[in-house]
């Protein structure tokens, strides 16, 4: 197998202006980085947005991307965080096809991962789970034994622990 390409957590604090997202996305695509997940949300005040990006690529490319992003006129800060430095959460909604025969098993899995049932019908169930991306991966993995009709994940959001800035 080929060498595992490392995934990086980046947090970008950006003025809420048209084009900001496109400019940031371009700095990644230009350097061959694959964005795994991207979450854009309002910052603490309305004029700013917080972007959390998980992307795969080599260290040298990453350093370039951080510097190129930091240089964008709209960007106030662009930082990489190791997994240890942050709390990371993700939310997933999983729609699983279940008949009454298998519902119990699926609910058991849900219970193990502390997932909530947010919709239930005769042929399907929608589960909501939050936690680390790895935990969600594990849950989805187990559920894939049944028929997953749809899967929607928010992508990872991170926040630096303690006094550190994200």
């Amino acid at each position: 197998m080929s060498k595992e390409i490392p995934a990086h957590n980046l947090s970008i604090y950006v003025a809420n202006r048209p084009g900001a997202l496109a400019r940031i996305a371009q700095t990644f695509s230009r350097r061959g980085f694959n964005i795994e997940s991207l979450v854009v949300s309002a910052g603490a005040t309305g004029d700013f947005s917080r972007m959390t990006i998980t992307a795969k690529g080599d260290e040298a490319g990453l350093e370039q991307i951080i510097m190129q992003c930091s240089k964008l006129v709209d960007v106030l800060a662009c930082r990489e965080h190791t997994d240890e430095e942050v709390v990371a959460r993700e939310l997933a909604l999983v729609k699983v096809a279940v008949d009454s025969a298998h519902r119990g098993e699926v609910l058991q899995i849900a219970d193990h991962f502390r997932a909530k049932t947010v919709d239930l019908s005769e042929k399907s169930i929608v589960l909501e789970a939050t936690g680390s991306s790895e935990k969600l991966d594990a849950m989805v993995d187990l559920l894939s034994k049944y028929k997953i009709i749809e899967l929607v994940r928010t992508g990872k959001v991170i926040m630096a622990r303690g006094e550190r800035e994200t």
Binding site: P18, G19, A22, R23, Q26, R30, V73
Partner: peptide
């Protein structure tokens, strides 16, 4: 043109 020129400007406005 705003998007066309995005990678070749220091900054741009629409």
């Amino acid at each position: 043109i705003f998007n066309l020129t995005m990678p070749i400007v220091k900054h741009s406005y629409l």
